[in-house]
């Protein structure tokens, strides 16, 4: 009698675990991922700066030797207004976000871009 009660408890526990698994399957995520998925993640500013500098260095119209953490696109890197639009769009692609026009117009240097991306919750 004692062992049959224990078996019931065990089988009930197994059933509830299975149903939790089914819910997770339907949502197509692992249970452990659920908590992480919705957490807002701000990127580390040092990492952001490094990635932005790499993106700008890879931009074909600017001289990689001149790129530093405080370069201004127009004054220091010799880009025109159209090129800076392209640079900002390359940064958008790198971090998988879309920057609205009004804010994109305000990004005129690597420092501005780092500040914007580091404060953006969706930047990856």
């Amino acid at each position: 009698m004692f062992s049959s009660a224990a078996r019931t408890i065990v089988s009930r526990a197994a059933a509830s675990a299975a149903s939790r698994g089914a819910v997770a399957n339907r949502l197509n995520v692992q249970p452990s991922m659920m908590a992480v998925r919705f957490a807002s993640t701000f990127l580390n500013p040092a990492e952001v700066q490094e990635r932005i500098i790499t993106v700008v260095k890879n931009f074909d119209k600017c001289d990689p030797a001149k790129v530093s953490s405080d370069s201004k696109f127009v004054d220091d890197l010799g880009l025109d207004s159209l090129d800076s639009v392209e640079v900002v769009m390359a940064i958008e692609d790198e971090f998988a976000i879309e920057i609205p026009d009004a804010e994109a117009d305000r990004i005129a240097s690597i420092g501005d871009a780092v500040e914007y991306i580091a404060a953006h919750p969706m930047a990856k």
Binding site: S81, L82, V85, E86, M89, D101, A102, A104, D105
Partner: peptide, 14 residues
Amino acid sequence: MNPSISLFRSLLRE
């Protein structure tokens, strides 16, 4: 905002 810059950005996005 400069309309040509804005047009350039919209065209590139599209």
